Amino acid sequence: MSIAPETRDARHAEPSPRRKAPGLELWLTERVAFHLRKPAEDIDPDTPLADYGIDSVAAISICGEIEEEYRIAVSPTIAYDFPTVHAIATHVTELLADRATDGGARS
């Protein structure tokens, strides 16, 4: 028996507590997989998202999900500036660390 992939919109879910990079990378992999309509297991965190055929709508959606989930501002071009799940996760982790260092001054 197979289980259908989750189809509910994560933007309406309760925000999760801050994750460290490995948890963030898993969450991000799941979001990318959702937008590509692929199993998360098929997403390699070191493969460029462009190789999967991610489009601008999905990239912008992922940007918004990062902002909502982690309460930080990221560039709408994040998926192009940081072309892999791993690179995006590393960048977001750095932004979170900067925010913590700044005492939460950034939003």
Rank of each mutant, 00 (worst) to 15 (best):
Thr77His: 05
Glu67Val: 05
Ile66Phe: 05
Ala100Leu: 08
Asp55Phe: 15
Asp55Ile: 08
Asp102Phe: 14
Thr29Arg: 10
His86Val: 00
Ala79Lys: 00
Cys63Met: 11
Arg18His: 10
Thr90Gln: 09
Ile54Tyr: 05
Lys38Asp: 04
Asp55Ala: 09
Glu41Ile: 10
Ile72Ala: 05
Asp9Gly: 03
Trp27Phe: 00
Gly64Asn: 15
Ser56Ile: 10
Ala73Phe: 04
Asp9Gln: 09
Arg37Cys: 07
Thr7Leu: 15
Val32His: 02
Ser75Gln: 06
Thr29Leu: 03
Ala100Ser: 12
Pro5Ser: 15
Leu28Gly: 01
Ser16Asn: 08
Thr77Cys: 02
Ser2Met: 14
Val74Leu: 01
Pro5His: 14
Asp44Thr: 02
Asp102Pro: 00
His86Gln: 13
Ile66Lys: 06
Val92Phe: 04
Arg18Phe: 11
Pro76Phe: 10
Ala59Thr: 05
Ile88Arg: 10
Leu95Asn: 08
Ala50Val: 15
Phe34Val: 00
Thr47Glu: 07
Asp44Met: 01
Ser107Tyr: 13
His86Asp: 08
Met1Thr: 15
Ile66Met: 03
Ile88Ala: 03
Ile66Leu: 08
Pro39Lys: 14
Trp27Ile: 01
Leu24Asp: 04
Glu14Met: 14
Asp44Arg: 09
Leu36Arg: 11
Glu69Pro: 03
Ile72Asp: 00
His35Arg: 11
Pro22Ser: 09
Arg99Pro: 02
Glu6Pro: 00
Tyr52Arg: 03
Glu30Ala: 00
Ala13Glu: 11
Glu68Gly: 10
Ser75Arg: 09
Ala13Ile: 00
Arg19Gly: 02
Asp46Val: 09
Asp51Gly: 04
Gly53Met: 10
Ser107Pro: 01
Ala58Asp: 06
Lys38Tyr: 12
Phe34Ser: 01
Ala97Met: 05
Ala10Gln: 03
Phe82Pro: 00
Arg31His: 04
Arg71Gln: 13
Ile78Leu: 13
Ser107His: 12
Ser16His: 12
Thr93Phe: 04
Ile88Val: 14
Pro39Leu: 06
Asp102Ser: 14
Trp27Asp: 02
Arg18Ala: 14
Asp51Glu: 15
Ile3Tyr: 13
Ser16Val: 04
Pro83Lys: 02
Leu36Tyr: 07
Ile62Glu: 00
Ser2Gly: 09
